[in-house]
């Protein structure tokens, strides 16, 4: 059984690509055949964050246009077994992705035995983002603890409920998970950021995890090695928790500090 998971947010720069790279890596480390697809046509970020940019020959759009076979475009990760990347194209043509083509590629990935197909969405709520979510079975909604990010996530949740294959065919609703990233308990305490409780109340979907704000993220993407690979950092620990939780294990929520015992203790304790 394959699962198509879209990593989406509405607002830009909240940590979708970081999350896609880390979750795909973490799931593959658990022995599941995983592919991360970069839907951000024109930008190409995922291959950089995953350190395989020099190995890109063909890309997602080439495959859709039948200019290359899927096997030619898939890049096998050098560090983690079972992990593959399907890079985005640098074409300026924003309409390069169409539902038929994307659907065909996803179907082929399923046939190849991929268990997790992670779709890294571009920012926004327009066509590119809708294409990334269209075939999803599940969505991880990446949100920063600030009002504009929460509002955009809310809009995205509305689109997930209406503008996806499942919604159009009347299938079961897409499962949605909230991932709160770039969280700083100190700023929450000072009232400069929304708290986990605030965001949960506004969005009303289950919390998959909280990823702290950390310099380790930038350092790891500069190195082209997802943070989760260096288990000594708090970000790695947070993403590992998320992966295990996502795969069905119970894990206490961490990195919330102040909030932990009071609010989440009540909710999840």
């Amino acid at each position: 059984m394959s699962k198509v998971v879209v990593i989406t947010s509405g607002k830009g720069g909240v940590g979708k690509t970081t999350t896609s790279a880390n979750i795909a890596t973490g799931i593959a480390q658990q022995g599941k055949k995983t592919v991360a697809i970069d839907f951000d046509v024109g930008l190409r970020n995922l291959d950089l964050v995953m350190g395989c940019e020099r190995r890109v020959v063909y890309d997602f759009v080439n495959v859709i246009r039948n200019e290359a076979k899927l096997q030619q475009a898939l890049i096998r990760d050098k560090r983690v077994e079972n992990l593959y990347i399907l890079p985005a194209s640098q074409t300026r043509d924003k309409d390069a992705l169409d539902p038929e083509g994307v659907g065909r590629v996803i179907e082929e990935l399923k046939q190849m035995g991929f268990e997790y197909i992670i779709c890294d969405s571009p920012a926004g709520i327009e066509k590119g983002a809708q294409m990334a979510m269209y075939f999803a079975d599940e969505a991880i909604v990446v949100t920063n603890p600030e009002v504009s990010s929460v509002r955009d996530s809310d809009r995205v949740l509305g689109l997930l409920a209406a503008k996806t294959s499942r919604a159009e065919l009347g299938g079961p609703a897409i499962r949605t998970h909230l991932l709160l990233t770039r969280y700083s308990p100190l700023m929450v305490k000072r009232g400069e950021m929304l708290s986990v409780g605030d965001v949960l109340e506004l969005l009303g979907i289950p919390l998959l995890g909280v990823i702290p704000e950390s310099k380790a993220v930038l350092q790891s993407s500069n190195k082209g090695a997802p943070a989760i690979l260096d288990e000594t950092t708090d970000v790695a620990q947070a993403y590992l928790d998320v992966v295990f939780r996502y795969l069905g294990q119970e894990r206490q929520h961490r990195f919330i500090e102040e909030e932990k015992r009071s609010f989440l203790g009540r909710l999840f304790g």
Partner: peptide, 24 residues
């Protein structure tokens, strides 16, 4: 929940909403 960007219209009718109507 009625999410940002969504519109619900009860034509010739009353509307009962049992979940939040969010900003937008």
């Amino acid at each position: 929940p009625v999410r940002g960007g969504q519109i619900v219209y009860a034509q010739n009718n009353d509307l009962v909403v049992l979940a939040p109507v969010n900003s937008g």
